[in-house]
Simulated assay, not measured.
Amino acid sequence: MNDFVPQRTAAYVSQHDLHIGEMTVRETLAFSARCQGVGYFYDLLCDLLRREKEVNIKPDADLDAFMKAAALGGQEANVVAEYMLKILGLEVCADTMVGDEMFRGISGGQRKRVTAGEILVGSARALFMDEISNGLDSSTTFQIINSLRQAIHILGGTAVISLLQPAPETYNLFDDIILLSDGQIVYHGPREDVLDFFESMGFRCPDRKGVADFLQEV
């Protein structure tokens, strides 16, 4: 179990949302956790509760109750699923069916979060997400990326996300930027340093132009 297995360490998240429409959001995440094995995430929650008790911090009531239930055996996947619902802001639709082409379920933005959540509940710590903003407006894209950012920072993972023409507020959520041109890496580094880098190369971003738009035109 402690061996390094790349297939369990990294995961690819497609731009297509493929779910079982008759399952609720909660059931979908719990099922995914059972299939993948909760591993690291469950250990992280156990450690969180232990540290809270050591410094006399009152733990989250729901999480504490689920952890006590898990101690009886067989409930680890449910604990992880419930916590992921909170991180991704899916509590409001937790008991709503995901839906498909035949009947209406959750919204497109919520479905994208479920797609990401299915992978986050597993043991993968490196996520590669392919154009997950397809078909979504800029506001929904911002909410999804913001949720993913919080989840990744909390879990200590890494996410590589490809986006086409992100809005300025969405662009500002990223820690690092990778700019590709004809299959070659033009820039890879902190978001804060990208303008200085290109200015040193002779490309200056106009004052009223968005950084993301400027980078696509360089």
Results as ranks from 00 to 15, higher is better:
127 L>R: 01
55 V>H: 09
58 K>Q: 12
122 G>W: 09
157 G>R: 04
57 I>L: 14
142 F>H: 15
152 I>S: 01
98 V>A: 10
136 L>Q: 09
59 P>K: 06
76 E>F: 10
114 V>Y: 11
152 I>N: 00
95 D>G: 02
85 L>V: 01
91 E>T: 05
58 K>T: 14
71 A>K: 13
63 L>R: 04
67 M>E: 08
144 I>Q: 03
124 A>F: 02
120 L>Y: 04
66 F>T: 00
77 A>D: 13
110 Q>L: 05
100 D>K: 06
157 G>M: 08
139 S>V: 14
58 K>R: 12
109 G>S: 05
80 V>R: 06
114 V>C: 09
121 V>T: 04
98 V>L: 08
128 F>Q: 05
118 E>R: 14
154 I>P: 04
149 R>N: 09
115 T>G: 06
120 L>T: 00
111 R>H: 06
107 S>E: 13
124 A>K: 03
148 L>V: 04
141 T>H: 03
72 L>N: 15
117 G>S: 03
110 Q>G: 04
145 I>T: 02
90 L>P: 02
113 R>E: 01
56 N>K: 12
127 L>F: 10
57 I>C: 11
120 L>Q: 00
123 S>I: 05
110 Q>P: 00
94 A>G: 03
69 A>Y: 11
136 L>N: 05
150 Q>S: 10
95 D>L: 05
102 M>T: 15
96 T>P: 03
154 I>S: 03
70 A>N: 07
82 E>T: 07
108 G>A: 12
157 G>L: 05
124 A>W: 01
69 A>W: 15
73 G>E: 11
152 I>E: 01
107 S>C: 13
114 V>E: 10
128 F>L: 14
135 G>R: 09
74 G>T: 08
60 D>E: 12
128 F>N: 08
91 E>P: 00
66 F>N: 04
127 L>S: 01
78 N>A: 14
68 K>I: 12
147 S>D: 02
130 D>G: 08
113 R>Q: 03
96 T>Q: 13
153 H>L: 15
83 Y>T: 07
70 A>G: 05
114 V>M: 10
155 L>H: 06
140 T>D: 06
142 F>R: 07
65 A>T: 14
126 A>Y: 08
135 G>H: 11
130 D>C: 02
93 C>Y: 03
74 G>C: 06
89 G>M: 06
93 C>G: 02
87 I>V: 15
136 L>H: 02
56 N>G: 13
118 E>S: 08
109 G>L: 02
73 G>R: 09
156 G>F: 12
101 E>K: 09
133 S>D: 15
141 T>W: 04
103 F>V: 13
100 D>W: 06
55 V>C: 13
105 G>W: 15
156 G>E: 11
110 Q>D: 06
116 A>K: 00
140 T>L: 09
104 R>V: 14
116 A>N: 03
105 G>E: 14
153 H>C: 14
147 S>N: 03
95 D>C: 02
84 M>I: 14
63 L>Y: 04
149 R>D: 10
87 I>C: 05
80 V>Y: 07
102 M>I: 12
93 C>K: 05
75 Q>C: 15
